[in-house]
Every structure is written in structure tokens, then in C-alpha cells.
């Protein structure tokens, strides 16, 4: 669909001890998709598949309206990427990186790059290998934002950054998304970042998509109740997403909150965070 910046449909990739199993989600143009999941859940593998860095066994992936394997250089120049751990040449300094990038990206914006380097206080003369992890990430983000990209694919771009810098960078992402044709896919295990900026959340667990939904709907539709362990049997199991039991009672994640409230008026419902929703669901899956 042309209105989607990325569409992943039934993506399947089998490794010896891990598999992406029919992964499907779509990222509407103009939105931020938070791609969450524990380490090893398949976030990076999915991103590699989107970027055609690995061969997929089955499924289709569309990026900016083209099959991911047939992306023209023109379309690729509209994609900014930040990889977990930074993949910039270690021996180069930002000035030299600018020299290289302006010959790689036809739409390279030198002025924007210098401005980001100043903003992030990245020293021009130091080589990448002398940078801290946070500085490397900021440099990568600076590169991704300096060629008039329309789609940012960010793999753990905010991990390793202190909270102040993370906040600063999240604000830059929010600025970026102000243009209606700009889109971000942000994979992260820092849920607070996703809660802060994402419009949609896709949760991957052990290579499978557990949900891919609008963040507000997700929060609106779920809620948490506290009840006695004995009360659990009286609640329709269709409403129960997960239960955490202890000796004092149970904490229950409820779906279809609105209907639940109408049916069970005696329970006070608390707002569920994305992190809680994820934890309840993944713990439930772990039981099976």
C-alpha cells in the first residue's frame, strides 16, 4: 500500500536455533512505529530483512512503495539508518565522514550535518574509535538525519545514551516526524522511549509478532485490576490477558476495558503501561 512506508507480510526466516515466524506489520507513512521485544526476539533480524541484508525464506516486504529487493538508489537515499553499535569506520573523524557521505548521498546536506555535530558536541578532529558509545550513536543519528531522509530505520538508537541525551534525541525524532511524509521505525527495549514518541507499537516475542497496534488504542483497551485469587474464577477468561498471583491476591491485565467495566462494576481499573502489557503477555506465553 502506498500509504504505508513499510509493509512486512508473512516474513519468515529460519536459522538453526531461531526463526522469524510469519512476521507481519505495517507502518503508515507519517507515523512512528516502536518495535519492541526482549533481546534476541528478532528485532534486528527483521530490520536486516527490511534492508535486504539477509535472504528471507518467505513473505514480502515493501519499502516506500517498492519491493525491498528492488529499491532504487533514489529511494534508498531517502532512508536513514542507525544500527545498534554503530557501523561507521573507526579510523575516521566526523569531518572525513562528511567527505565520504557527500559522495554517497546525492541529497547530502553538509550544513545540516555540521549543525547536528555542533548540537551534539561531537569533536571534529577525534576519530570514531575514540568516541564513547553515546557519541557514536549521536554521530550515526547525525548522519541519518543529514540527507533529507523520509524514512528512519533505527535499531536501538537510543540505547547506551544517558537520559538527558535520550530525551534530546527523542525530541529531534519528534521534530523529524512533523513532516507528514516522514516515518520512523524505532526498535528499542527502552519502553519509556516508545511510550513517549511512538504512534504504533509492534511487539515481537521469540520471532513472532504478538501485537502491532496503535499505541493509544492499546493503552485505552487494556487495564489492570487487583482482586482476590478466589475472584479470578468469576471473571470471564475472554477479558483476561494475564495474571500475576501472589499470596495477597492477583494483579490481572484486562482487555476490552470498556466492556469489562460495564460488566464488572465492582473493580477499580488502573491504566496499564505498554511495559506492563508486554510483560503480562510475554509471561503468559512463557507459561505455555
Amino acid at each position: 500500500m502506498m500509504n504505508d512506508a513499510i509493509t512486512v507480510h508473512n516474513l519468515t526466516k529460519q536459522y538453526n536455533n531461531f526463526a522469524l515466524d510469519k512476521v507481519s506489520f505495517r507502518i503508515p507513512m507519517g507515523s512512528i512505529m516502536g518495535f519492541v521485544g526482549e533481546n534476541g526476539a528478532g528485532k534486528t533480524t527483521t530490520i536486516k530483512a527490511i534492508l535486504d541484508l539477509i535472504a528471507i525464506d518467505d513473505g514480502t516486504i515493501t519499502v516506500l512503495g517498492s519491493d525491498h529487493k528492488d529499491l532504487s538508489k533514489e529511494k534508498k537515499s531517502l532512508i536513514g539508518t542507525v544500527f545498534d553499535g554503530n557501523h561507521l569506520p573507526e579510523n575516521m573523524n566526523p569531518g572525513e565522514i562528511n567527505l565520504v557521505m557527500k559522495r554517497i548521498y546525492p541529497n547530502w546536506n553538509e550544513k545540516a550535518f555540521h549543525s547536528y555535530m555542533d548540537k551534539f558536541q561531537i569533536p571534529y578532529k577525534k576519530t570514531v574509535k575514540e568516541f564513547s558509545r553515546g557519541m557514536k550513536m549521536k554521530l550515526s543519528i547525525g548522519v541519518a538525519l543529514s540527507h533529507n531522509a523520509k524514512l528512519l530505520i533505527l535499531d536501538e538508537a537510543t540505547s547506551g545514551l544517558d537520559p538527558m541525551v535520550r530525551d534530546e534525541i527523542l525530541d529531534i525524532f519528534l521534530d523529524f516526524i512533523q513532516e507528514e511524509d516522514h516515518t520512523i521505525l524505532l526498535s528499542s527495549h527502552i519502553i519509556s522511549d516508545i511510550e513517549k514518541i511512538a504512534d504504533y507499537v509492534t511487539f515481537i516475542h521469540k520471532g513472532r509478532i504478538i501485537f502491532s497496534e496503535n499505541k493509544d488504542d492499546l493503552i485505552y483497551n487494556h487495564g489492570i485490576i487487583h482482586c482476590k485469587n478466589t475472584d479470578l474464577d468469576m471473571i470471564d477468561t475472554n477479558y483476561i490477558v494475564g495474571v500475576q498471583k501472589n499470596q495477597f491476591g492477583s494483579k490481572v491485565l484486562i482487555r476490552d476495558k470498556e466492556y469489562f467495566v460495564r460488566r464488572y462494576r465492582n473493580y477499580a481499573i488502573e491504566k496499564a503501561s505498554i511495559e506492563e502489557i508486554m510483560l503480562f503477555i510475554s509471561n503468559k506465553r512463557g507459561e505455555h
Binding site: 536486516k48 541484508l53 538508489k73 532512508i79 539508518t81 544500527f83 557501523h87 554517497i104
Partner: peptide, 18 residues
């Protein structure tokens, strides 16, 4: 060796480079 150490190739392939 430099490219391998930096995992440069995967990064370069996300750019307008085939």
C-alpha cells in the same frame, strides 16, 4: 579488515549503494 571490524558493509548497503 577495517570494513569487517566496523561492520561497514551492512551499513553501506542501507545507503544508495548496491
Amino acid at each position: 579488515s577495517f570494513d569487517e571490524a566496523a561492520k561497514w558493509d551492512s551499513y553501506a548497503l542501507s545507503m544508495p549503494v548496491d
